[in-house]
Amino acid sequence: MKVLVAVKRVVDYNVKVRAKADGSDVDLNNVKMAINPFCEIAVEEAVRLKEAGTATEVVAVSIGDKACQEQIRTALALGADRGIQVETEGAVEPLVVAKLLKGVIEKEQPQLVILGKQSIDGDNNQTGQMLGALTNMAQGTFASEVAIDGDKVNVTREVDGGLQTVSLNLPAIVTTDLRLNEPRYASLPNIMKAKKKPLDVHTPADLGVEPKAHLTTLKVEPPAERQAGIMVESVEQLVDKLKNEAKVIS
């Protein structure tokens, strides 16, 4: 079984991002970048399937400029067998990503596609679902457990009310939630070995896709700063303020 995993280059989760002064975007100048944590979980799951003998090949794909090869290499160091970069410029929207991934799926014919449920930069949570719709493949989103069962995959989903298990026919698309697994560290020897693994570069045109922008960012601004609190004198005063100033009780 061939598994395709998508990885995205995002701002490292530890970075405290700051908005640019002109409000056009967050400031990415000299900021540490990393694999989106949910994508890392996707890679780990695919590698575990390979270690268990269920998967025969793990292919890591990323969409972006040359810099995203760094994240592909990390996926290779974590255990993926080969990488694909779809070379794009600037920001790409979830729909474009989904279309490009569909193109990669048509070329690669994987039995299972694992993606992060969302990326921590845009927080869109759309790509996996759009990809399911575009490819007509079954989808199991927010996975906390993935079990291959013959030509099916059983995906336990984290839903509002608890856990829901769905059984999907392969090929299928799975998006990972936080508790699916704990990704390993890529060791230095594996990082060095990853250098020798193949990495192919495609253009959107190779995949028959023309990246288009459907969305316009109007403004990027930091969240409002919390106002300093005050000490109230009495319970009566507290109730009064909750009622009349904060208006959270009536």
């Binding site: 000299n30 160091a77 990853a194």
Partner: peptide, 24 residues
């Protein structure tokens, strides 16, 4: 932002493997 990473001057000697090692 003058944090640990952004206060590092660019170094063209660093490649993908170096960054991967830093991350891991």
């Amino acid at each position: 932002s003058l944090d640990f990473d952004s206060a590092r001057l660019p170094n063209p000697n660093f490649n993908e493997e170096h960054e991967a090692w830093r991350t891991q």
